[in-house]
């Protein structure tokens, strides 16, 4: 069976002030249906550009996609008419953003924000839901992300929620449109470690329970190990190594991956050199 998402030889350059930089040099990766895949790299590796290209959020110009394909469910997103592209974004593929505060509208209640997305998703999916039905669905999805008191959260403004709760609201938003692929950009990195652990566990449980495919974009190798079975390591616009997560961490083949793993401090203390 072919992959749900398949990026093939993606090349992107950025032109600013007359200078052109090759940012992605033929990136290829696959996310099979229902798989948990991670894309890991340090700042400037190109992981965020890859993610933006997949979501169709790259500003062109300055960016220019000059090679490759992004196949989603058998269709090349790069040649798709804008209308169809927009229809896929936030429906078939949904995104969980990193910064929960700046991704939420501060003057709307959580229910208002979720309802807006739900209406949009319903229209796309050809569903008919009345006001009470929409409210019920909003409460349901808030319960799915383990809010203890979904009714209260629905009536709250973002500022009334903790960072962990806001992050869970963002996950709820992504789930509302019943996506097949969830793209998560460093979820929980702005949060305390205990809260981050809860968020990662929630994501893992949801993805498994609903059979979603997950593409986790992160710089944290620990997060990779906690959330994915397969990992792509990126450096300077290229995939330098890929493989099943556990195996790759045990026995990295490339020098770059070896150095990266060696730089991570261990909970067990220093590894003998």
């Amino acid at each position: 069976m072919s992959a749900l998402l398949s990026v093939q030889g993606l090349s992107v350059s950025f032109t600013t002030y007359g200078r052109t930089a090759e940012v992605l040099k033929g990136v290829s990766l696959e996310v099979p249906q229902g798989a948990q895949v991670a894309l890991v790299g340090e700042s400037g590796s190109g992981k965020s550009v890859t993610m933006k290209a997949i979501m169709g959020l790259l500003q062109q110009p300055p960016a220019r996609i000059h090679g490759g394909k992004i196949m989603f469910d058998g269709r090349d997103l790069l040649t798709l008419p804008e209308r169809e592209r927009v229809a896929l974004r936030g429906t078939a593929m949904s995104m969980v953003f990193q910064d929960p505060m700046s991704s939420l509208n501060p003057v709307w209640t959580i229910e208002d924000q979720l309802t807006t997305i739900l209406k949009y998703a319903d229209r796309r999916l050809g569903r008919d839901r009345d006001r009470r039905g929409r409210r019920a669905r909003v409460i349901e999805v808030l319960a799915q992300v383990r809010m203890r008191d979904p009714e209260r959260v629905a009536g709250s403004y973002p500022i009334m929620l903790s960072g962990g709760m806001r992050q869970r609201v963002l996950i709820a938003m992504a789930l509302l449109s019943e996506p097949r692929l969830l793209i998560a950009d460093e979820p929980g990195t702005a949060l305390d470690v205990t809260t981050q652990a809860q968020i990662l566990k929630l994501l893992r449980d949801l993805v498994e329970a609903q059979g979603l495919a997950l593409l986790m974009i992160t710089h944290n190798l620990g997060v990779v190990r906690e959330t994915s079975n397969y990992v792509y390591v990126m450096n300077k616009g290229e995939i330098v190594e890929e493989g099943p997560t556990a195996g790759l961490f045990e026995a990295p083949r490339q020098q770059y991956t070896r150095d990266l793993i060696a730089a991570v401090p261990r909970l067990t203390g220093r590894v003998a050199p």
Partner: peptide, 10 residues
């Protein structure tokens, strides 16, 4: 228990 780790030993 919350620390994301990279090896089985940890």
């Amino acid at each position: 228990a919350s620390v994301p780790v990279i090896s089985a030993e940890e």
